[in-house]
Design a protein around this nucleic acid. Structure first.
Lengths: 207, 207
DNA sequence: GTCTATATTCCGATAGAC
DNA sequence: GTCTATCGGAATATAGAC
């Protein structure tokens, strides 16, 4: 909790930071306790002293990542702004979040694919549930005729796709397009502003 | 090659099929030779008789997946159809491909994230390069004023995102939206027709 | 709390019979 | 080509001193 109350909290934080790095890069199976220890500047024994075993440590990191994703997702989608504003804010904040923690989304997607059953349990623990307010808001705009007829779930998938895919597919994109890191970052910067506009243009009605 | 010429080809095919299943689900590090052997209905020793080691086997599966993705990608993007037709064909064929081999994209993205350096070598072997014809075609339509001003790379990323993300993020989507497999498949079926229309609407000019 | 040294488990790979 | 049995190394986890 506090570095002042408990001096060993510093070590724990170093471990957690190292774990984020190693788990997100190599996944659960590929991660090595030795490498986490090295990265944290300690040794394996101390690692096991602070966290009973690999699985415990992994669980903390995974739930932490999931929690961060959830908070941004729901606090934006379930606030009370107009639909288009909400889409703009969401895309911008989500891309920002993923840029600052570029391991999050790939990590979560990857690990959920490895073990969907076990890890879906974390979803319930973290309290993730369908963004009901946002769904109703979309249906309302359709009824009013301001946007095309689209299934709310499809729109949400589109928003998530356009925001998150570049980070999951970063190596693919760089490889296919022949980009270096600098070019890739420039592309991401542009997307912060543009993704929401493309999304809105795809659903706006024209007369 | 042929099951007739070489009777052991049957075993090899069983191994390859089993490897696709296990590697795509668990990744390189998480895959177990034992499980591949079980899945193929043989034992570990025979596995190593046919394929020297884990890495060789993995390399074949990975390059195979990459090759399949590449073929669809480039044969569509570099053909000589009008832009909008091409987008329609691409989205439809790509989603179809990923639906039939739902492990492909997640597998490739995941493994490239784990080891970008080593695996980018495969990209070169497989002959993947920027889709130049498609890029020029987009720029031409911008010049003619039929579509909005958009960087070709961004449009390509949008197309890939909307087509591929649902498969990578399947567990996330199912979790967040509370969908079962049947509902998810229905959503995918709709996307085959709709993704290209949303993409086109996002770049079409209106007067 | 932190370390060195060691036990234990797991898994890729090989030897050798058939 | 296919099997059983086993080796050898690597990685997780623990014992025990400081």
């Amino acid at each position: 909790m506090d570095d002042l109350k408990d001096p060993s909290a510093k070590t724990r934080n170093q471990i957690l930071e190292a774990s984020r790095k190693v788990f997100s890069r190599y996944g659960y199976a590929g991660a090595r306790m030795q490498q986490i220890a090295d990265e944290a500047g300690i040794n394996k024994a101390l690692l096991h002293y602070h966290f009973r075993n690999k699985e415990t440590l992994y669980g903390m990191i995974f739930k932490e990542a999931l929690g961060t994703l959830k908070n941004t997702l729901f606090e934006v989608l379930n606030c009370d702004k107009p639909l288009f504003d909400k889409i703009r804010i969401f895309c911008n904040e989500y891309i920002n979040l993923l840029q600052q923690n570029s391991f999050f989304i790939g990590f979560v997607a990857m690990e959920l694919n490895h073990n969907p059953d076990k890890l879906l349990g974390y979803f319930k623990e973290t309290g993730i549930r369908p963004p009901q307010i946002f769904v109703e808001q979309i249906n309302e705009e359709i009824r009013k005729g301001t946007i095309i007829h689209i299934q709310p779930q499809q729109l949400i998938i589109n928003i998530l796709s356009m925001s998150a895919f570049p980070f999951i597919g970063k190596p693919v994109i760089k490889g296919v397009m022949g980009m270096d890191d600098e070019q890739f970052n420039t592309i991401i910067e542009q997307r912060k502003k543009m993704v929401s506009e493309w999304i809105i243009a795809s659903i706006e009605k024209h007369y």
